[in-house]
Design a protein around this nucleic acid. Structure first.
Lengths: 361, 361
DNA sequence: TTGAAAGCGCTAACAC
DNA sequence: GTGTTAGCGCTTTCAA
């Protein structure tokens, strides 16, 4: 009896996993499962990982012991040793996950990741683009296999080292600067040009452009699309009706209100982003000019079709963008040597009324 | 020279971190940094973790070496050894992170977690509530310190073992079943009762209730709030105007359309959730009865104030709920013995027009 | 088919 | 101040 206890001790199951008075029972380890099942650590590992070559009897004994101890394998410890050092974890870095556009991308990423048993970290920049690099480094310290980033900082050169160390990267919504990588974007410039062209064809000359942070390629591309259309048309030079660097819905509302209450207000608006479009919707309705002022927005938004008039938009499919980004990431993980690859997901105008309002006579 | 090379080898920096032809350079370790700086592993550890008691000179030497090798400490390895075994990681499990209500909660959680250097996993149930347990177990295997869950499965008893093993839990939007824990909810029943009471005071008798999955406590509470108000009033018995178990915006639109085109349609709607409210908004406008049918919805949604009439809602503050949930989680992590705690974040009616429409004469 | 030993990258505990 | 040793929970390698 004593001897058998001694043997148990050498097997080093030092504490039988008894429940303390607090009800707290520490997590059990493979060693403890092994001791309870009377097998070696490695046999438990084999059973847990469903490796072949364990007798049916031992499989049962181990599984019983694991269940009894409520054993849950420690993936982080396993990954530490496992070859390739993959953690089956990826990270997402956006300005704001609660923006419906990014929330949908996240959902699309999750969808693809879940199929592969990969967990997804999410982080927002908290109004501070200088945080981008810090967040990336924090994820890198956690050894995520890859990162999906909507570049917000002026420059992503800091990623070069990370990527050389094996961190897979995919960029969404806009291309990075200072580094190459897989990119999932939409045809911002062409789609914007088409939309503004439509406004011109309906007879508008005073067409305003209300855009986001101009340092971002997305905003830049959309602005260039606007210029493309305006320059090609016998329309007025746009300068007076361009507002850029709008960051919030409230700012958009204010700017649009100012534009529309000026001496010679624009007859049409191109609002270059979902929050801006919603701010403009607010302003137009507050001034009761929504039926006489044309509007086309970039990015679809909830209830855009229910408003009166419905808001014409250039629609992207953010969930699809998320899926594609995740797939690009896993493809790169599988083959780190492949050439950087840009996928353009086309956007197109959805006409709902607001974009088809002619200018006042 | 040869000798010095030999010494390097015994220090076991086996491969000088030369760049291969592919440009790929594996991540460097503390050992390599130590070898390059000519100090011991532990000294590097001290510098990296900003522990006191390292001479200024060595700090500089180590930092230089770390920078040169682009060293990034491996947090997962550190956590494996660190006492308490905390991973500074938490997980969120929701039905759908792209639902604006949950997206805002996530954002609130991130906000609090970021301050503490804690990373946040996000996962959605992908239309399949049976996945809840699987996702929780996957996170548990990754040794998250805590989990924030909006309970969706019929029962959360499976969490008892996890919690006994030290997993901290906080529940949002609704209380769990079969297990106790910290809960952040709103006053669903009372707030709904007040809203329906307002409809009754405006003279409505035929008030419809369109609710979500009735197995969820939230939906149940809101339904009971509706009953509270209806039973207390000299109003018609509600049975005919109750639709439950609505899961999508499209279903809500369809149900509301059917109700309103029936022989004796309701004169007012209580829509018990954001997606349902939006579906109802669609249906009312499609039938052009939005100005003659009263509506109050639970949960605020974007542009509700811009619609005509504006949609009266019972508003929650989901971002705040997220912050409170994260704080509850960290409080429990700090003191696992404290009593389970329920926080009720009050919701209140925001009148915008649709809830103040009287019944037709 | 099973197991013992080494070690993933790091920190804890204890030397010196 | 600095270094050495052991070991976190697991996989890898190799021997039996």
């Amino acid at each position: 009896m004593q001897y058998s206890v001694f043997v148990m001790t050498t097997l080093s199951s030092p504490q039988p996993p008894l429940e303390g008075p607090s009800g707290h029972r520490p997590r059990s380890t493979m060693r403890e499962v092994a001791a309870l099942a009377g097998v070696s650590l490695k046999t438990v590992s084999r059973v847990v990982n469903r490796e072949p070559g364990v007798s049916a009897e031992l499989v049962i004994r181990v599984e019983r012991a694991a269940a009894q101890l409520d054993f849950r394998p420690n993936l982080t410890a396993a990954n530490l040793r496992r070859s390739g050092q993959r953690t089956a974890t990826i990270g997402l870095v956006f300005e704001d996950v609660s923006n419906p556009f990014f929330a949908s991308i996240l959902r699309g990423v999750e969808e693809v990741a879940a199929q592969r048993g990969v967990a997804v970290f999410a982080a927002s920049l908290d109004e501070d683009q200088s945080q981008e690099q810090q967040i990336v480094e924090a994820f890198s310290s956690r050894r995520v296999d890859g990162l999906i980033l909507a570049p917000t900082a002026v420059e992503q050169g800091y990623l070069a080292n990370e990527m050389r160390s094996g961190l897979a990267m995919a960029f969404v919504d806009r291309a990075p600067r200072g580094v190459e990588g897989d990119v999932i974007v939409t045809n911002n410039r062409a789609a914007t040009r088409d939309a503004v062209q439509q406004l011109i064809e309906f007879g508008h000359q005073r067409i305003a452009f209300i855009g986001g942070v101009s340092a971002l390629p997305t905003a830049e591309d959309r602005y260039n699309g606007y210029l493309d259309a305006m320059m090609a048309a016998p329309a007025r030079v746009p300068g007076d009706y361009v507002v850029r660097d709008i960051r919030t819905m409230a700012q958009a509302e204010k700017s649009v209100t100012e534009l529309l209450t000026s001496a010679q207000p624009p007859t049409a608006l191109f609002t270059a982003q979902n929050l801006i479009s919603m701010g403009a919707v607010r302003a137009l309705r507050a001034l009761s000019v929504e039926k006489s002022t044309a509007q086309i927005g970039f990015d679809d938004f909830e209830l855009a079709d229910v408003l009166n008039p419905g808001v014409t938009v250039v629609a992207q499919d953010p969930r699809r963008i998320g899926r594609l980004a995740a797939e690009a990431l896993f493809a790169r993980l599988a083959d780190p040597t492949r050439q950087p690859f840009t996928t353009v997901v086309p956007s197109a105008v959805i006409s709902r009324g607001s974009g088809e309002i002619p200018p006042p006579p």
